[in-house]
């Protein structure tokens, strides 16, 4: 029998467009930003795009709100640069119309009477074609015979909507059977459906995020979109040993030993303090057991998995670079998966 293959690897050298998705609250914008920094290392130019109008990137990189224009938001020590762009669907539509139809004043009329708002909100799939179109454009952008960006990172909509968002071909089917929108959708799909695009899924070791991740993997696979890595965010390393966690969960830690230890350290060793410490250990044991179950579900997805540590100091520039470092190690050595939480 042939050896059992490990999870398929991401070919980081081939991927030009990194789509980052995840359930709300899992930190997908943070991971998108850290991934952009990681990709910039080695003197590369990286563009990170946001499409939900939340100005999450400006907050992350601690810059003023981003205009509809590429701005440099970070440099890495060896000369790499990260640029950010907040894509606005209405502006993208006007830009697009102007480019192809030289609309001029008519464009403004369209906006004034609400046609642009209407088109970008209700025309099936048009909004997503415009948003993914900007990523497509950035990947292909060239200046003086050289690529403008080595990699593009897209901080995409949440896992619940990701397949629809990326599957622009199917989405515009009801809208445009022929014409420029159809052509644009076809071009975008030729990138999104190729190995040059990878969809990374950000999750936590909690029930709902892992469930959504599993659902998204199934949907993306069905739609023949290439899945990249599963990124487990905010993983905490438990302070207790595995056997101690088991005992803590069963309420079987040695009270006398703990009391003696407290006394030896010159701390109050009364019944209440001991009971509190044991209760906190039991709470931790329960959480770790839950995380273990969720981790097993993620392993079943059979995707390369990267665990990012929980930053006890909160999120700041230092923390972002720390996460970028973890991601970089992961990309360089896909086998050496960091499993911070596994004792």
């Amino acid at each position: 029998m042939p050896p059992v293959p490990g999870p398929p690897e991401v070919d980081w050298d081939v991927v030009r467009l990194h789509v980052v998705t995840g359930k709300g609250g899992t930190g997908k914008t943070t991971v998108a930003g850290a991934l952009a920094l990681a990709l910039a290392a080695g003197g590369h130019r990286v563009l990170v795009l946001e499409v939900e109008g939340r100005q999450g990137l400006a907050q992350l990189f601690d810059t003023p709100p981003l205009p509809y224009e590429e701005r440099r938001v970070a440099v890495v020590p060896d000369g790499g640069e990260v640029f950010a762009l907040a894509v606005d669907a209405e502006e993208a539509l006007l830009e697009y119309l102007d480019l192809f139809y030289h609309l001029g004043r008519a464009g403004r009329v369209l906006k004034k009477i609400g046609a642009v708002d209407f088109a970008t909100t209700v025309a099936p799939g048009l909004r997503d074609v415009l948003l993914t179109g900007k990523a497509y454009e950035a990947v292909g952008k060239r200046k003086a015979g050289r690529r403008t960006y080595d990699s593009v990172v897209l901080d995409a909509p949440p896992t619940g909507r990701i397949t629809r968002f990326l599957n622009v071909n199917t989405e515009v089917a009801g809208l445009a059977r022929v014409g420029p929108i159809r052509n644009q959708a076809d071009s975008i799909m030729s990138l999104l459906g190729s190995p040059r695009t990878a969809v990374h899924l950000v999750t936590l070791l909690e029930e709902m995020p892992t469930q959504e991740t599993a659902d998204a993997v199934a949907e993306l696979t069905e739609a023949k979109l290439s899945i990249g890595a599963v990124v487990v965010n905010m993983v905490r390393r438990p302070q207790l040993r595995p056997a101690e966690l088991v005992a803590a969960g069963k309420g079987k830690l040695d009270r006398g030993d703990v009391a003696a230890g407290l006394e030896a350290a010159g701390l109050p060793a009364d019944e209440r303090t001991v009971a509190s410490l044991l209760a906190e250990a039991a709470h931790l044991a329960e959480r770790v057991a839950l995380e273990k179950r969720e981790r097993r579900r993620l392993v079943e997805l059979d995707r390369p998995t990267c665990e990012l540590p929980w930053l006890s100091g909160g999120m700041d520039a230092g923390g972002l670079h720390e996460l970028a470092g973890e991601l970089r190690r992961f990309m360089g050595h896909p086998d050496a998966i960091t499993r911070t939480g596994t004792p």
């Binding site: 207790l240 703990v258 230890g261 030896a264 350290a265 410490l277 906190e280």
Partner: peptide
């Protein structure tokens, strides 16, 4: 009433003395 700093200090002390490892780890959890 048992602060983080005091717990960490005591945990360090226990670890250095090589005794009561469980108590030291429980103090870090706390």
């Amino acid at each position: 009433d048992l602060s983080a700093d005091r717990s960490l200090g005591a945990a360090k002390q226990l670890t250095e003395s090589g005794t009561y490892g469980l108590t030291a780890r429980l103090l870090r959890v706390h």
